[in-house]
């Protein structure tokens, strides 16, 4: 397999400019404005394989392991990733109607919210103990560990999983 040269580049610095755009400087001395970081495996392996793409979506470089980065760089990168990824983590299910489309009320790490689910197929098991829910607007919610939910929430979820 031919290894594309993108992975050979190394990030030297990463910072925001005055307009809030992310500026990347690579070890070959080039600067890129408006770069977008993205995790390749946001669910199964968020700590590895983070790519940085240019504003057109073309990959500039790929970081295999976040812990190999200088701490300053890593902080900026993780902050930016956190800024981009809006996946509320469900901590408690308050109620859910069983009829389709069903109305859910949940408590997440970002506060209490209500949403509607188009079909029960939108509740999916990803890893053996992980579930993902996509509401009718395409917003994704994550339940990182089904077993750790309280019994009342689990009973509600059992109707769907």
């Amino acid at each position: 397999m031919t290894a594309p040269q993108t992975s050979a580049l190394k990030p030297v610095s990463l910072e925001h400019d005055a307009w809030g755009q992310l500026i990347l400087e690579t070890d070959d001395g080039r600067r890129f404005t408006g770069v977008i970081p993205a995790r390749a495996f946001p669910v199964s392996d968020p700590e590895h394989w983070v790519s940085i793409c240019d504003s057109q979506g073309h990959e500039l470089l790929s970081i295999e392991n976040l812990s190999s980065l200088a701490s300053g760089l890593r902080t900026v990168l993780e902050a930016e990733l956190a800024h981009r990824e809006f996946v509320p983590v469900i901590q408690r299910l308050v109620s859910a109607t069983t009829q389709e489309p069903s109305d859910w009320v949940v408590e997440t790490d970002r506060g209490r919210t209500a949403f509607q689910l188009n079909s029960e197929d939108d509740v999916r098991r990803i890893e053996p103990d992980q579930a993902s829910i996509v509401d009718s607007h395409g917003i994704r919610y994550l339940i990182p560990c089904v077993a750790k939910l309280d019994p009342a929430s689990r009973r509600i979820l059992d109707h769907f999983l």
Binding site: A38, A40, F41, P42, S44, G57, H58, E59, I126, R140
Partner: peptide, 11 residues
């Protein structure tokens, strides 16, 4: 590259 643009990437 198109996989990276998907919200869950390879997942």
């Amino acid at each position: 590259e198109f996989i990276l643009r998907l919200p869950d990437g390879y997942d």
